[in-house]
Design a protein around this nucleic acid. Structure first.
Lengths: 180, 180
DNA sequence: CCGCTCATGTAACTGGTTACATGATTTA
DNA sequence: TAAATCATGTAACCAGTTACATGAGCGG
């Protein structure tokens, strides 16, 4: 009945989905993901994997295939159970909210001069467009993925990005309207 | 030319916007906000305020008004400058992405049984609807606020919430379609 | 053979949270 | 007068990041 943290569950889930794999490949997944909240820092992953092994949620197999033998991770039955429990755990109030760093800055946009404000809005729109492109590229890279849940999850990221772009545009409209 | 962290900037901005006020009132703002990423824990706020005072970004005045004299905080000119710098700082790649805890769980929804999956989707939709209600109530509570930036920022939170509800509905549609 | 990626790890640091402690003032 | 809120603070803890270190195998 062990509970796992979000990062722990993400690692567990990653190993569960992508077969026996190395800790490094899990790490790389985080490093490349444009949507994860975790950086995939080695200092987080490796100690965490050790802990999961110690708790019997992961096990490592010496797979001596080819010339480069590697320690491949696998999820144990209790690991799968822990993952399931994490997924279906009742959502706390914090989980139902999202945090947007641009929103946090928007609140204080009034502290800038009108010229700087305009610049900020342009720059924000540009950054969001670039981010959307990154998301689309990342999606492209995983075109072979047939798992519907992965697909649905990626909808969320795309929705969010598009919604934020519309938001910035509306902000611009609202603010120029006020000046006129 | 001191740089401030996000929490520091938020405190600075809060004091800047809501006149001379106590550290406690700033803290309460975080405690009540349904959208902030910070909990407003005392252990974060008070040491942080002291640091900002030491760095000359905040100053405290003994305002002996009424029966309850209090230490009221004010933003110094360098504090305002630091806030401005934080707002207009170029957005890093991490800032252009948002993180959604529901999305993280969605990726591994396939680990649940079909029945549990359906339950999860229902529960998620319910939680998101409740969150939207909280946002609307919070907005209502600040109806007197005339600042356009506050208003625009709150659009973002509402957009995001509605967009997530549509997302869950689409997910349900997609998944029931697959079963049929 | 040089540089890149694979692969694993650790130590120091950072920053926020939890939990606790205290006391004054207001409201029921 | 008891409970709630205002108000300030601190110490222990935790989790993730940064930066560093090491070595093996592979491609140009």
């Amino acid at each position: 009945m062990t509970k796992v943290s979000e990062l722990e569950a993400s690692v567990l889930g990653q190993v569960w989905k992508h077969g026996p794999c190395t800790a490094y490949s899990v790490r790389k997944h985080f490093l490349e993901s444009p949507t994860s909240r975790f950086s995939g820092s080695a200092g987080a992953i490796y100690p965490l994997v050790s802990r999961l092994e110690a708790r019997g949620l992961l096990r490592s197999r010496e797979v001596g295939r080819g010339r480069r033998p590697g320690k491949k991770l696998e999820v144990t039955p209790s690991g799968r159970a822990a993952l399931r429990r994490w997924v279906e755990a009742p959502l706390g109030g914090e989980e139902s909210g999202t945090y947007d760093p641009l929103r946090a800055k928007m609140v204080f946009l009034g502290s800038l001069s009108p010229a700087k404000r305009r610049r900020w809005l342009e720059e924000a729109e540009r950054a969001l467009a670039a981010h959307l492109k990154r998301l689309e590229a990342h999606r492209e890279a995983y075109a072979g993925e047939t798992d519907p849940y992965f697909e649905i999850a990626s909808w969320n990221a795309l929705d969010q990005a598009r919604s934020r772009i519309r938001w910035i545009r509306r902000a611009k409209a609202r603010l120029t309207a006020a000046t006129r």
